[in-house]
């Protein structure tokens, strides 16, 4: 009896046309949806990206590289790298510290801290730039004092660094908080009971656990630090060869009808984005593998 039922089922399946599984849509739906997604990607991602490189290489490779030999372009590239080299480590330290506090401890004002971490995401970059002008500008709170002591903050490199740090503030912390919360505090407790001190616990237990999430956060943070336009534009003063970062330099070149050079510098930023994406997928892949290895 018990074996008769499956038998009849299988015989029926071979006789009738193959029935559709509940989790599978008809072929035309799948094709249309995939098609729409591909067309969308093509128009809004691949096409602009291709256009950037096509425009940049329109007058040949020589003109393309000439754009980088220009002293102003070179200084913009150096400034962008310098700003990222300062902003990313700052936010790395801050992000780990903040995520550690939020995920591993209970304390009053915790939700306030989380809100503060999110603030730079919520505020328009232009506003964050203006905040610094209001504080450090000549007419601002600290302006006259800075002037007296010959210190330059806005319209100079420190202001650009500050604005970038502010805008890229949440990336590392936001990446780590959910990860650390999901991991809980059991392993740290175990380490502590086994006699490790706080520092050892952090280096040997916490940090290895969050390694991949941390890399991911750093990559996002770096991409934004190099690409930030709005906040930096407000505090830069646009002095050529001095306070122009790459995105600002692209705007200047475009406004000077020098579109080959503008797109050449833009292509450098685009390459950075591509490298970021590749690194990101690699890290996601490694992370997924390390998770599988763990379970």
């Amino acid at each position: 009896m018990a074996s008769a039922i499956p038998q009849s089922l299988t015989s029926r399946r071979t006789a009738a046309p193959p029935a559709r599984r509940a989790t599978q849509d008809p072929a035309w739906v799948r094709w249309v949806l995939t098609g729409i997604a591909l067309v969308f990607l093509g128009f809004f991602l691949v096409l602009p990206l291709a256009a950037v490189f096509a425009e940049a290489l329109r007058r040949g490779v020589g003109a393309y590289f000439a754009a980088f030999v220009d002293a102003d372009a070179w200084s913009a590239i150096k400034l962008t790298l310098l700003v990222a080299a300062i902003a990313v480590p700052c936010n790395l330290v801050f992000g780990v510290a903040a995520a550690w506090c939020v995920a591993k401890f209970k304390f009053p004002g915790k939700s306030l801290l989380i809100t503060l971490i999110d603030l730079p995401f919520a505020v328009s970059p232009v506003i964050s730039g203006l905040l610094y002008v209001l504080v450090f500008g000549l007419q601002g709170w600290l302006g006259p004092w800075l002037q007296e002591h010959d210190l330059k903050v806005i319209f100079a490199v420190p202001g650009i660094v500050l604005a970038t740090v502010f805008v890229t503030f949440p990336f590392v912390a936001r990446e780590l908080i959910p990860l650390m919360q999901s991991q809980g505090t059991d392993e740290e407790h175990a380490a502590l009971t086994l006699g490790a001190n706080g520092w050892q616990t952090f280096w040997r237990v916490t940090l290895p656990n969050i390694k991949w999430g941390l890399f991911y956060g750093i990559i996002l943070c770096n991409a934004r630090a190099m690409g930030e336009f709005g906040a930096v534009s407000v505090v830069s003063g646009h002095i050529r060869g001095e306070t122009n970062t790459m995105p600002l330099h692209v705007e200047i070149l475009h406004n000077e009808f020098n579109s080959v050079a503008a797109f050449a510098v833009a292509s450098l930023l685009a390459l950075l984005a591509l490298v970021t994406l590749v690194l990101k997928s690699m890290i996601e892949w490694r992370h997924a593998r390390s998770l599988q290895g763990g379970t």
Binding site: G140, F155, H238
Partner: peptide, 20 residues
């Protein structure tokens, strides 16, 4: 000689705010 360019009113604003 370094140059900075933008809308005239906006540039004046930057100088007022401390662009040297």
């Amino acid at each position: 000689i370094k140059q900075s360019h933008g809308g005239s009113g906006r540039q004046a604003r930057s100088v007022i705010d401390g662009l040297a």
